Every structure is written in structure tokens, then in C-alpha cells.
Amino acid sequence: MQNSHSGVNQLGGVFVNGRPLPDSTRQKIVELAHSGARPCDISRILQVSNGCVSKILGRYYETGSIRPRAIGGSKPRVATPEVVSKIAQYKRECPSIFAWEIRDRLLSEGVCTNDNIPSVSSINRVLRNLASEKQQMGADGMYDKLRMLNGQTGSWGTRPGWYPGTSVPGQPTQDGCQQQEGGGENTNSISSNGEDSDEAQMRLQLKRKLQRNRTSFTQEQIEALEKEFERTHYPDVFARERLAAKIDLPEARIQVWFSNRRAKWRREEKLRNQRRQASNTPSHIPISSSFSTSVYQPIPQPTTPVSSFTSGSMLGRTDTALTNTYSALPPMPSFTMANNLPMQPPVPSQTSSYSCMLPTSPSVNGRSYDTYTPPHMQTHMNSQPMGTSGTTSTGLISPGVSVPVQVPGSEPDMSQYWPRLQ
């Protein structure tokens, strides 16, 4: 039975679970980093996980050691009161100082060594604690504590007292930064006198190289990059290397530039699409467009005044059976039934097929058609009795279509119309 579990990581490298990497692998990681390889490249070359490479390099940059820390136990506290007071002093002298600059000053002034120097995250935590204590304490208590930490007896009751030896409130920041720059020169002199001055200088240079600022491109470089971006948004590694040799930039910087440029292009394309949609959409909808001609068919113009009344309900007709019959029939052209047409008796099958359309009241044959006459024609229609054979009435077949029909004066039988409509 094995005491430890061995495995293979996602890159194909072998590791022992819970145990640190061998010293030979750690040394190779540092050597590759000094030669300029990126952590992701080191991870692929040595088949070590990216997190492990970053952790080893980060500890090497901070402490200069590649040895693993002790497994188990607690780390001794490195942010001692003396170190905290120095950090507060540096922050007062130059409020814009960075944590890694404070760390360098602690090393250069001999406050800490490589073994007990606090990390950048520890210094940031100390600065946050100082800021929170400043908010919790009152103004007087804060000034007393700062005077105690600074070891001075001057008056701290006013704002300019934060910067000793100065009279203009805006000047101390520059003086403090100048003092810090002077301390940086002392850093070089002190570290050069040490035993491991060369190694420390190499480590600091490598650290500065990794902690780079934003790349500033010249106009020629920007023009070359934009020209390549117009050709393709995704250049391959050969195109990037050719462009890197042409404009004297690292291939990694060119790759990052193209990634950022593609993101910018997507944002601009989104804005262009929004403007295009806004320009195509009308600002207001016309009133006429809300009524579609496919839904509402136009009603033909009436030929006679009587045809303006298109349904039985508008003429005072309360018989719903006839109203439904007229509205359900398709529109037909106007025609006239003459008196000489043969009077065919209704076929029983045809009569039964339209039995649902006729009223059940037996008085329908005896009703006159003056009910369908509009009010303004009552006088004219009353002067001509319906009993004469020459009287013409208008029957409504569908809305908007008038059918003048000659009705025999002897017997106005409704059943004569249905064979004609089939």
C-alpha cells in the first residue's frame, strides 16, 4: 500500500499530492522566468500547473527564495509595531506611495530583511487598517496617535501638521516623493554593498519588468496595427511575429492590442446598429396606417339613396333571421326581375335548405315592403301603392349592394327569390 497518492495534472505532468515540487523543477521555473518566458509558457514547457508556477515565482520575487514554506503551523507575524509605524510614516510623507514602493524602502533602510519582509498584500492590509482606524477615531485622537508614531512633539492640530517642515499644504506631496526618490538612490547604494547585491538587483529588475506600465504606442505603430486590423481581426502567430519585427513591439503586446481592438470594434458596431435601427424607425405612426385595407374592405359607393341603408337594423327591421341572411350572402350585381318571367313554384328541397333563413311567422307573405323604405322617402312611396304591378321595390342582398326588384302586385311571395340566388 502506497503512503502517498501520485497523479497526472491537466498538462500531463506527474505530481505527488500534498508534497511540494522538487527543487530542480523550481530552479528551472526561475531560470525560464529570467530568460523572459511568460508564466503560461513555463507552465506548458515544464508541465506544471499555472497556479503552481505563479505561486513559486511570486514567492521568489518577494523573498528571493525558491524553497517551499513549512507545511503546517502558523507563519510568524511580520507586521510588527515597528514595521507598522514605518509604513504609516512613509504614507504620511508621500500619500500616493504604492505598497511595493513601501516594501522596497523597508528593505533599503534595513527595517526588514528578506526573511521577515511583509508581502505587498500585508502592507496593503496595514494601510487599510490605518485608514479604518482613522475613520473610527476622532480628529484629536487621530492626531495624537500619528504624533506618537512619528515621534515628534510638534502641533498636529492642523492639517499642514501632517507634513512636517512644510508650510504650503500643496507642497508636502512633492517633497515626500522627492525624499522617497532619494531613498531609492540609497536603495541602490545599500544593496550594492550587501553580499547578495547582484541577486537582489536582478530580482528587482525582473520584478519591475513584470510590473509594467501601460504600453505607449507611437503613431507609426498605431498606423501599422490599424492597417493589419483592417486586413483581418484575428491575425495568426506568423502575422503577429512579422508585425512585431516590423514595428519593434513584443508579440504578446500585439496580441493584447488586437484583443482590445476587437472589443472596441464590437462596441462601435453595436452603436452603429442602434443608430441604423433608430433612423429606419419613423418618429410617429401615421393615422391612416393604423387601418389596414386588408382588414377593412372598402364599401362601394351607393348608386341610389335607398342603398345607403345596408342592414335591417338601420331600417328599423327587427327580424334577425333576414338580417343574418342578407349579411351572409355574397355580393351580387344589380339585376331586375321582369313581370314576364315565369313564376316557378319553389322546389321543396330548395325551400327546406333555406328554411332556417325565413321567419317562422306566416304573415311574411302579407307584409308590405314599406318597412324598408327610409324616412325621407315615405311620402313618395305612399303616393304609389304597392298593389300595382309596376311598383318597384329595392331588396338588399349584402352591405353596400342594392338590387332593384320588380315585385308582382298580386302576391309578394318571398319564396320566388331563392331559386334565382343559387
Rank of each mutant, 00 (worst) to 15 (best):
P76V: 08
I117R: 15
I97S: 14
K91A: 04
A139I: 15
A70R: 15
E101P: 05
E82G: 09
K86R: 14
P68M: 02
V8L: 07
Y90Q: 07
Q89K: 12
R38G: 01
N116F: 09
P81M: 07
G73D: 01
G58V: 08
K86V: 08
L32F: 08
R92F: 14
G18I: 01
M148S: 09
K75N: 04
P118T: 05
A70W: 04
A37K: 15
S4K: 12
L21H: 05
N116H: 13
L127C: 12
D41H: 08
R44P: 02
S35G: 12
R67P: 03
G58L: 14
V16E: 06
F15T: 00
E62V: 12
T80M: 04
T63H: 03
E109K: 12
R105P: 01
E93W: 05
F15A: 02
E31M: 10
S54E: 02
V16Y: 15
L146K: 12
I102K: 00
P20W: 03
N124V: 02
P39L: 07
L46N: 01
G138M: 13
I71A: 15
I45K: 13
L46C: 08
N114Y: 10
R26I: 02
R69L: 12
C52G: 06
I123N: 05
V78R: 06
C52Y: 02
K86Y: 12
S6Q: 14
E82Y: 14
V48P: 04
K55E: 02
G13Q: 03
N17F: 15
D115I: 13
V8E: 02
V16D: 07
P76D: 02
V84C: 10
I87G: 01
I56S: 05
S74W: 01
Y90W: 09
N3D: 09
Y61L: 08
S122A: 00
G13D: 01
P118C: 04
L149H: 13
A70M: 08
E101Y: 07
H5G: 13
A79R: 05
Q135K: 13
P68W: 03
D140V: 12
L106P: 03
N3V: 12
S85A: 11
P39H: 09
N124E: 03
E133A: 13
K86S: 09
T113G: 14
Q89I: 13
R59I: 05
P20E: 03
G73Y: 02
G36D: 06
C112Y: 01
I66W: 15
A99Y: 03
G58Y: 12
Q47C: 15
L32D: 03
L146T: 15
V16G: 03
G141V: 11
L146Y: 14
V8S: 03
R77P: 00
P76E: 01
I102R: 01
L57Q: 00
G18M: 01
A70L: 07
R44S: 06
I87F: 06
I29V: 05
P68G: 01
S132T: 12
T113D: 11
R125C: 00
H5C: 13
V84K: 11
A37V: 12
H5R: 15
V120W: 00
T80Y: 04
R92N: 10
S4T: 13
I102L: 12
S24T: 12
T63W: 01
S108Q: 11
G18L: 01
Y61C: 07
A88I: 09
S74T: 04
A33M: 11
R69P: 01
R67T: 08
L32R: 02
S108N: 13
S85G: 12
T25E: 06
K75M: 05
N17V: 15
G51W: 00
V78C: 03
P76H: 02
A139Q: 15
F98R: 14
D140R: 12
I102V: 05
I29K: 00
A88K: 00
N3S: 12
V111M: 10
R69I: 03
N50K: 14
P20F: 02
G12F: 02
S65T: 08
A131G: 07
L21E: 02
K86C: 15
K91M: 00
P68T: 00
S119L: 00
K55S: 06
P95N: 12
C52H: 00
C94T: 13
C52R: 01
Q135S: 12
L107R: 15
I117K: 15
N116I: 09
N114A: 12
R67L: 09
I102E: 04
R92W: 13
N9Y: 04
Q135A: 14
E109L: 09
Q27S: 08
R128V: 02
P68H: 03
N124L: 06
M137H: 11
R19C: 05
S49N: 06
H5K: 15
S49L: 01
V53D: 00
T80Q: 03
S49W: 04
E31P: 00
I42P: 03
C40I: 11
S74L: 01
S43V: 04
S49G: 06
R105V: 07
G72P: 05
N50T: 08
V111N: 09
N114S: 11
C40P: 04
P95E: 10
T63I: 02
V48C: 05
I66D: 00
R67N: 07
K134C: 11
M148E: 12
I42T: 03
C94L: 12
W100A: 07
E101V: 11
S6C: 14
D140C: 08
I66K: 00
V30I: 09
Q136C: 08
N50A: 15
E133K: 14
P118R: 00
Q89T: 09
G138L: 13
D115C: 10
V84F: 04
G138A: 13
S119A: 04
T63P: 00
L127A: 09
K28Q: 10
M137A: 13
G36A: 06
G51L: 02
I71R: 15
I42N: 02
N124C: 03
P81K: 11
N114M: 12
Y143W: 10
C40H: 04
S96G: 08
M142D: 11
R125T: 00
P39C: 13
C94P: 05
V111E: 06
R19M: 06
D23Y: 10
Q136M: 11
N114E: 12
P95S: 10
E109C: 11
V83M: 03
P81S: 07
L46R: 03
